[in-house]
Structure formats: C-alpha cells, structure tokens
Design a protein around this nucleic acid. Sequence first.
DNA 1: TGAATAGTTTACCAAATGGTAAACAGTGAA
DNA 2: TTCACTGTTTACCATTTGGTAAACTATTCA
Lengths: 122, 122
Amino acid sequence: MVNSEVALDAVFGALSDATRRAMLARLASGPATVGELGAPFGITKGAVSKHVKVLERSGLLIRDVQGRVHRCELEPEPLSQAAHWVDEVRAHWEARFDALADYLEELQAGAVPSAAKGESRD
Amino acid sequence: MVNSEVALDAVFGALSDATRRAMLARLASGPATVGELGAPFGITKGAVSKHVKVLERSGLLIRDVQGRVHRCELEPEPLSQAAHWVDEVRAHWEARFDALADYLEELQAGAVPSAAKGESRD
DNA sequence: TGAATAGTTTACCAAATGGTAAACAGTGAA
DNA sequence: TTCACTGTTTACCATTTGGTAAACTATTCA
C-alpha cells in the first residue's frame, strides 16, 4: 500500500462521519475553537476531542494552541487529494462511455468493424 | 441526521478502504465479476464478498446476477454526491480568502475602513 | 448424475470506532 | 491563591470492521 493510499484512508475515514463533516463545514467559514466545533452536537467534551483528533490526524484540520483554547483551522489540501481521486475514477468511467459512443457512431456511419460480431466487447 | 448524510456516511466509509478503492478503480474501466474484483488481493472469497457488499450498500456498485457469476458495475452517482460535498466545502473555504483578498486590496487602495484598527480580524 | 466453479453465509477473532463519565492539566482572571 | 474554564486523557462499553476457515447454495458442464 502506497503512502498516499494511507492518507486517503484517513481522509475518507474522517469524512465518513456526519459529525466530523459538519465540523469541517463549520471550519470552511472560518477558524473555531474545539469547544465551538463541538457545541452543536449533544456529545461530551471527550467525544469532541476525539473527533477533532481524527480530523487532525487526517490532515484536514490544523490546530494552533493559544493559551487554553485551541484554535482550529481547515486545511484544504487533503480535500483536494480526495477530490482528485474521485475525479480520476469518474473521468476513467466517462471515457469508457465516450469510447462506446464513438464506436456506436461508427457503426451507424456504416463503417462496421470486424470485431462487431459476437460479444467481444468488454 | 438527514438521509443524504446517511448516504455520505456509507459512500465515504466505502472509500476509506484501499482495497475497495482499488476495486472501484478497476470497475471504472469496465464491469467485472466478484472473483475478478477480488483476484488482485490476497484475501479469501468471504472477505471479497464483504467488500463488494459494502460497495453495493453505499450505492457505488450495482450487481447483475447472471447464472452463478455476479457481474458488477460501477454506479458513479454516489461519487458525484461525494465530490459535490467536497467541492462545497472547498468553495466555501476559498470564498473566505477571496473576501480577505478583496479587503486587503481595499486597504492598499487607501480606502481604510474604520474596522481596520486593532486586530479585529477573526 | 456427479464434479467443478462462483459466490454467500456462518461462526469466530482482533482491532478500531464512537460514545460516556470522571479525573487531570494548564490557563486566565478575581 | 483560588476558582472557573478549555481541553485532554483514562477506563470502560457496545458496535462495527476486516479478516479467516469452513460449510453451504446454486449453476455449469462433462
């Protein structure tokens, strides 16, 4: 398993929880303390601390300790990596259909390739 | 928790495993049987079956049972949902910086707003 | 019919996850 | 100095997860 795959594990893993996604959405509009991040959810401080730590480990959140408050900020880089992975797969998938469309168009144009008999497609 | 959030939980959860991501990448270039999907990994049929089921539950994979083989196909819709969520957060984040850039530009232009004294930013 | 094949299911295991309660550590302020 | 506050840590719990081995189901084919 490559290193970037480990990172994607952590990033997608962090995103797979609705509480953490809400925290990230909150952070997208500006920094917040751990307390502020946890306030909307009826969970204990311990649980909030864990969620923030998961986000931090995934690289999606960076923390700046200022006295007794921890100022958290969104780090968008891992989001880009995740988006890139998703886009790659989607692009690959769509390319397949583009190729199929081209093929069908060729067929329609009368230029029937010899491979058209049987079910050799795929 | 809204329904779409439940779906995102499942989608991001499915993506958080490197084996399943590799399976999806494989499916992006065309359909495959459960056996073909599992072949690259040194895991048992049972484990493969579980991974495929996770992908299916998340909506990322659809299955067409043809006799004794299960033909699996990528369903890109949930990928779009995931990409959309990520893009929303990134857009929101970038908008914040655009606003900051505008503000700094205004400052440079000499139109110093009264709020510019002290460190009231953030 | 009987054997091989494709895949699921069951029972089990160890580790990870999301949560709690309560103790703890450090900081700020009266 | 003492108290309130922010956040982490520890111990614990139930559930989920990723894996195995082995039994089972259903289909294909000789």
